[in-house]
Design a protein around this nucleic acid. Structure first.
Lengths: 201, 201
DNA sequence: AAGAACTCAGTGACTAAGTCACACAGCGAT
DNA sequence: ATCGCTGTGTGACTTAGTCACTGAGTTCTT
């Protein structure tokens, strides 16, 4: 099976998982779950990239975190256990492959393997850490710094394809703020702007 | 034993827990853990109130959430599992009682009881939800609304004992901002201010 | 009891960020 | 070429955060 958390399972259970679970192919733009949705099982991300974002009462959105290869959708466990609907939304960015582990099988895995439990809990811990850092970032850091850091962290060949609106959702701010900060960077000769693209120099 | 999560355990393990675990008394102001601390075990809060806050790179602090009676310090599980130090700090507000479950015993409980596992995971889910709501609040909601809501949520007999600085940490903003907003509320005749106290009218 | 030392609160001046309203540019469809 | 849609630029204004400083209320000293 293609997800490392399954490799820690004892052989019989691993076999069962391999035979009963299928690899889902998720095209970019696909919405895996939306606010209010009920949780069908635990998604394990095998490849690609999925962003998790939430919409506030005000209608504003913000990206909370991303999941990549080998990640576990920890958010789903809470929904699975408490029966609440999701509060956030998951959208595929780069075409992804995922495995959906149904609740019953998940329970079995948790019961049987200490290593599996540790993996799940550690994943939870990381997510909690991510969110704590995000709170700090949103509450205290300057937007120009955050923007530059975001750009630096995901340039590919000096070029990024994204609209100002999308970038605003990444940072949890308004489109106008992003436009103005980018314009200032352009004036400083640090980037070149064109419709839907940012060229980092 | 005094914490409900322990009641779901099978009798032998519950007995063992009752005999080996002691109830810790924590006076107000006591720091249960600080950033960087290593995790000794899973704290279960039996009574009282504990706030969890973090300090940003800028030195600013913000309260992330509170734990009350019957809560589980979910944050500790991540540290326990991954071996990382804490990123936040826990401070006792109202004198609290807590039980500290050492890692080995916690592992045993997780191994033995499905109900215990479900309780732990559900607690994790709630904490994630809290933090997601906090992100939204900090990113998008107006400070005056947040301040009024905070006051409304914890008035006792119309009176609150807190300094503007402490209130600023609750909301993740600057002391001056709190002072100004409170002064405006006083001008509107909604509160009466005195050193260290806010009287809600 | 008087003064020193400390904590808490108030405020002006300024910068950063968010909101609102609107103009206009790039691009695809007809 | 024109229309319509989406994306971007900008001015004017409000809200929030920062800096520097004053002064008021407490507690400690002697």
């Amino acid at each position: 099976m293609k997800h490392p958390i399954l490799d820690v399972l004892p052989v019989p259970l691993k076999r069962e998982a391999e035979s009963s679970l299928t690899l889902l192919s998720l095209p970019p733009g696909e919405v895996i779950f939306r606010p209010g949705d009920h949780c069908a099982g635990l998604p394990l991300v095998v490849s690609g990239s999925v962003k998790v974002q939430m919409t506030g009462v005000s209608g504003n959105r913000i990206v909370l975190y991303r999941m990549g290869a080998n990640d576990i959708c920890t958010l789903s466990i809470g929904c699975l256990m408490s029966g609440h609907g999701y509060r956030a939304e998951a959208v595929v960015e780069e075409a992804a492959e995922a495995i959906m582990v149904p609740r019953q099988l998940f329970d079995q895995m948790m019961a049987v393997s200490a290593e599996f439990r540790t993996g799940i809990m550690a994943s939870y811990g990381r997510r909690l850490d991510d969110l704590m850092l995000l709170v700090e970032e949103v509450a205290f850091r300057r937007m120009d710094e955050r923007l530059e850091q975001w750009l630096a962290s995901r340039v590919k060949h000096g070029m990024i394809s994204i609209t100002h609106q999308e970038l605003a959702v990444e940072l949890g701010t308004a489109r106008e703020v992003v436009s103005r900060l980018l314009k200032e960077l352009e004036r400083q000769g640090r980037v070149a702007l064109s419709r839907g693209h940012i060229q980092c120099l």
